[in-house]
Design a binder for these strands. Structure first.
Length: 472
RNA sequence: GUCCCCAUCGUCUAGCCAGGUCCAGGACACCACCCUUUCAAGGUGGCGACACGGGUUCGAAUCCCGUUGGGGACGCCA
């Protein structure tokens, strides 16, 4: 069987992190089996679908590196096709016009809830009567769901799930304005696109028996269904906007790398023994939908961050350049006003957990620090630091090459000459250069700050110390 | 409320399908120590779970039933 999977988002928002995982699983399964990955945009709801959302979703998928083989196919461009199939079901007697008013349906549902029943359509128009109620208002079309027996779904992840048809009702497949609804278009499209594996979110499990019934009425072949569990927020509830990031572009803005997100998402609900880190090729080689967990998983930013750091440490410096430049610019820093970004990356990759973090920690290399960190200045820019600072400035100024080794030697020799422990010199120097007590090793800090800036900042720090001495 | 699903460390999970090798393994986080010019990175060690109750069995984290808890669905949204 040729494997054909599809990712079918509705363009009503961004590419949600849960949707991204579903897309990843669809993509991996198709790639693993030499099949095709189809992208379909479910925009039958003309009110809520937006072109901006489509763009965001496509960008998100591309950024993650999830390339699709076919599409995007827009459902909004297939209305004629759906109309054709609706007419067919009507002619076959598998669908019927319903003239019930919204008011009646609402009252019906309310009454059912009050009685402790599951709200569902009562089939009033099923036999073809009741037209008068709506007057001239156009009818909706409902699917004539079987009344007895059950529908069994052999889910590739969850196993066998049975639903009694008696629990299902006759749902609307075409709105009063003639546009088709989700539970119908999905089936027509999956048949037309010859989708072999329907991999989607857990929240669609209950739609599956309805869709299977429609599929049978349409004479289609049943695909394999695989329902991926939800991703929960830290509080155990569904991921929502309140939990912070939920769209993939938000993760990008937080400084996460696509590789880290893909790796994290894959491991969220899927595993391969004790392995935690997987390259894309490894994922493609090992992924199987049958190995996906049945239980929902809580999204853990800490672990994602750990993976992100892992990927930053190992990434090719060239590939980090663009993203880092973007983050520096977001801090209103001019990348041209500092060292080569490759140098920044090499120095900072072990200490940055995200690119945002890396940019923030490198600010001193592109811009003079503002005020000194109060605690750091108080502790290190004291009168006793003046002589060491002046001495090291002299040595640094005399250096021919502003490179890590001579820089380190200059600092070490100064400390030695003054009979100081290295820290006694390095810390005041660090505060002078960065305004804080935390930075890369002192020679790397000097390297990134550059000669002119370093010397000027040491001078400024000496002035600061003198002023402080004068005040006391 | 009704239907559907789920249940191993705080979190992600291995083990479960083919019961014994599991007084339950790995990872993140956390704690301690080591390294160290700061912060990191790295190294070593530690803390920490089979939801509960029955049953089947010589033996259950693993199979069955129930309870509890959690999630999802119940739209002329997708």
């Amino acid at each position: 069987m040729t494997v054909r999977t599809r990712f079918a988002p509705s363009p009503t928002g961004d590419l949600h992190i849960g949707g991204a995982r579903t897309a990843l699983f669809c993509w991996l399964y198709a790639r693993r089996n030499g099949g095709s990955f189809v992208l379909r945009i479910e925009d039958t709801d003309r009110e809520r679908s937006t072109q901006a959302s489509v763009a965001t979703i496509l960008e998100g998928l591309s950024w993650l590196g999830l390339d699709w083989d076919e599409g995007p196919i827009y459902q909004s461009e297939r209305f004629d096709r759906y109309r054709e199939e609706i007419r067919r079901l009507l002619a076959q007697g598998d669908a019927y016009y319903c003239y019930c008013s919204r008011e009646r349906l609402e009252a019906l549902r309310e009454a059912q809830r009050a009685r402790g029943e599951k709200p569902r359509y009562d089939g009033r128009c099923r036999s073809g009567v009741g037209r008068s109620e709506r007057g001239d208002a156009p009818p909706v079309v409902r699917f004539r769901n079987p009344l007895s027996r059950e529908v069994v779904v052999e889910d590739a992840i969850k196993g066998r799930i049975a639903f009694a048809n008696a629990e299902l009702d006759d749902f609307v497949i075409a709105r009063a304005d003639g546009t088709p609804t989700y539970n119908f278009t999905v089936v027509v499209d999956d048949i037309d696109l010859e989708i072999s594996h329907v991999i989607r979110g857990d929240d669609h499990v209950n739609n599956t028996p309805r869709q299977i019934n429609v599929l049978r009425a349409l004479g289609g072949t049943e695909p394999v269904y695989a329902h991926v569990p939800m991703i929960l927020a830290a509080d155990g509830r569904r991921m929502s906007k309140r939990e912070g990031a939920q769209g993939v572009e938000a993760f990008r803005d937080l400084g996460y790398l696509p590789d880290a997100i893909v790796n994290y998402l894959a491991r969220l609900g899927w595993s391969h023994g004790d392995q935690e880190v997987f390259s894309r090729d490894e994922l493609i080689g090992l992924f199987d939908i049958a190995d996906v967990n049945r239980a929902a998983a809580v999204f853990d930013f800490e672990k994602l961050t750990w993976l992100n750091q892992h990927y930053i440490q190992r990434a090719d410096a060239a590939s980090l350049r663009g993203p880092l430049r973007r983050e520096l610019e977001r801090l209103a820093l001019d990348p041209a006003e500092g060292p080569d970004l490759a140098t920044v990356i090499e120095v900072q990759r072990d200490r940055a957990r995200t690119l945002v973090d890396m940019a923030a920690k490198s600010e001193f290399a592109f811009r003079d620090p503002g005020a000194y960190d109060e605690g750091a200045a108080k502790k290190h820019l004291r009168p006793v630091a003046l002589e060491p600072l002046l001495a090291v400035r002299e040595r640094l100024a005399a250096l021919e090459a502003w490179e890590a080794e001579p820089l380190h030697a200059a600092v070490a020799e100064t400390a030695e000459a003054l009979d100081l422990k290295l820290g006694r010199l390095a810390q005041p120097l660090r505060v002078a250069l960065t305004g804080t007590a935390m930075s890369p090793s002192i020679e790397k800090t000097l390297l990134l700050a550059g000669r002119a800036r370093s010397l000027a900042r040491i001078d400024a720090a000496c002035d600061h110390v003198r002023r402080r001495a004068a005040l006391s």
